[in-house]
Design a protein around this nucleic acid. Sequence first.
RNA 1: GGGCGGUUAGCUCAGUUGGAAGAGCACCUGCUUUACACGCAGGGGGUCACUGGUUCGAGCCCAGUACCGCCCA
Length: 851
Amino acid sequence: MALDAEARQKLEETTRWQPSEAEARIFAEWIDGDYFHPEATGNAEDNYSVAIPPPNVTGVLHMGHALNGSMQDALVRMNRMKGKNTLWILGMDHAGIATQSVVEKRLKEDGIDRHEIGREDFTRRVWQWKEDYATRIKQQYQRLGASCDYERERFTLDDDYARAVRKVFTSLFEKGLIYRDNYMVNWDPGSRSAISDLEVVNREMADTLFSIDYPVESSDRVLTVATVRPETMMADTAVAVNPADPRYADLIGEHCILPLVGRRLPIIADEHVDIEFGTGALKITPGHDVNDFEIGRRHGLEEISVIGEDGRMTEAAGERFAGMTVGEAQVAVAAALREEGALSAEEEYVHSVPFSERSGERIEPLISLQWFCRMEELAAPAIEAVEDGRVNITPDQWKGVYLNWMREIRPWCVSRQLWWGHRIPVWYRGDEVYSGEQPPEGDGWVQEEDVLDTWFSSAIWPFATLGWPDETDELKAFYPTDFLTTAREILFLWVARMIMTGIEFAGDVPFRDVYVHSVIQARDGRRMSKSLGTGIDPLGEIDEHGADALRFGLLSMSSTQDVRYSDAKVQQGRDLSNKLWNASRLILMNIDEPEVRTVPADPQAVEDKWILSRLESTIASVTSLLDEYDFAHAAQEIYTFVFSELCDWYLEIAKPRIYEGDGEIAQVLLHALERTLSLVHPIMPFVTEEIWRYHPYREGHLVVHPFPEAETARRSEQLEASIDHDIALTRQLRGWRDMAGVPPKIVLDAQGDASKVLEFVGRLSRVNIRSGFDGESVATVAGFGILASEGLDMDALTDRLGARRAKLENDQKKIEGKLGNQSFVDKAPPEVVAEEREKLVRLKSELVELG
RNA sequence: GGGCGGUUAGCUCAGUUGGAAGAGCACCUGCUUUACACGCAGGGGGUCACUGGUUCGAGCCCAGUACCGCCCA
């Protein structure tokens, strides 16, 4: 099939790849073709599936999603092209605290407080928000080209999903792993909720360190304690010293008196106390400090709370301070102590202070009644799964990080004092507590007000999205999934928990491979963040350079370490898409479809064999790089092949035959183009699909075209080396011309045997090589005698030849020194020594040529 | 405080088992070569953070120092 007139015209006038014109149209074709929506048939062993890390419905697509999506899509597309039944599960996360707070903030701008409108009305408004944002996020993934199954979109608060969550909770409850306890939690006064350890960020802060004298009972002595939080002293229930500290050994078991309050505090001994810090005596406040809480539990101390959930002092703080904010109380307590003469020192102290990642407020450690999940039993098999390789974590170092954390896992506080989320399936009636998937029978039951931590529902994402707990066809076909790519910051929050629940509830690990990708930082090396204003909008980059360019750029800048966003890499991607487009124009506009589509196993032209060998080598290496998740090198291999080998050399070498209408080269080119497009498609889907539209072999969309499998029979290192030699000669001649200042238009004459090199050497270097010229050659280059010509600038040449000679002589000296070293010759492997000798020979012959 | 990672060309980054350092961008010199100036050809540019050690040979291995970053407490 030759190009029809319309197609030819389109190719002729489109001299640049224009992503904005094509991308939406192409994506619509993929959707119409239903390529992303597989039947739930077959089994997970043969099929390929990936569950997207569900983006939060709080925001829009950011660079992290774009990177993550590019990686997943590359693998998903490659496996789909390999003919596997492939599913990429799409969905969003309700993101409890985050979503509730953005909606709350929005309402506040309209002067609405959520407590005024009530739980039901509030959550209805959040759902409305969710609908808007889920639609936007979905469209943004489509802009990126993500080949998710848009018909199987899931949300962590859907009815079916909620059923799965209740089932998991109830089952853990019945196993006794879920329990309710008064425990120290990270209280976030901003969201008025407990949050998990993993949602706390520590920041360096300068505070005042107060030294307070606690008089020892029936003695003249005082114990001086140092604290940054004097306002919590009303909750002190002991003073602790280190048992190994000789200064206080005699006081252990005695009591001291709490200033301002007058309470008797036992003086206890605990290993935790740092002898070096302050005076070595520590006030113990089990109600308001994490470490003190544990010391208190060890010694059976009373737990007093003087700070309420609103961040204000309670009645228990005494009427002098009750109702004050924590900050106000600190000032008031310090003043009162000063008045009493109990404050012996104040100094500045820099330490690390916990803040809520969500609300940004300082965490108030409080004791409160919360639901917890005990983790050891769930962690054990999840540790094993990584140890024995059923789950493989790449890069390797993260495996160790995962294992360390899992081995020291702590109870997980799963309750949150929010409205937006899965309401905990527990009901109370008097002292009775019931947990079940459905409300209990009978009257008088009241459901728990709290909701579950968002991560409790995301923890079951890979199987809950497939219909669990029902035994669906989807589960059978697509669980476990194959691959998960994630940012390392959610390795514990999310990945570890999925492995635990997967094993516990779905009977198998949730995925085989976890790839922890790098963080793309802002151009200046800072973190990309909305609040810093350092974010780069992927949609803006797509508008400007095209989705293929962004995908290529992100993949090639990704690495095992954090990297700065590189505009140059995105431009490289744009250049590559343009190059593919134009190389294809050259081929498609000048070549007619051959009668036979196959390419001979042994084509006549050596350059044809060469490019086919290079193509198959590239296919082999790109495929294996993608298999080991080395996206950056895969992208670079493709770039080098297309630019350097295919375009700069092969197409230039082949041009005369292209224009002559050579039959064999038509076969070679169309074959090479078909395979190149297929190879590149997983990384740059749009431009390749668009080019494929014009390819005479096209029978359907490229998105489902077979992915090339490397044909080893076409590969020949020997052949590659021989063409590489002629390429090197060409470059040598070109370099010499430039050195000699020969204008590009002038064709030089050179004395030599043209049959010893391929035709292109003379053509591409613009040197007319033949034997039998009259006249003397002025220089010898690569064995050819260059004849005098009007274009030669002999002075410039002499200067530059001198420089070249100096460099060669220097190299020669180095190698001779090496070979003169007896122990090198004796001890180095013979092939290394031989190589050095060859190098020396080459250098010497080039020096001779220079004259 | 514990752990991990980084320091290579002006910039951003690669460097497989130790054999003498690469890419892209930027820079310089040419080129309206009928696929592409988002292009082509040629070129300059590095005490591989520092100090010791192992080795015939170290960017790579070992020990230490400095600075930067991340995770956990």
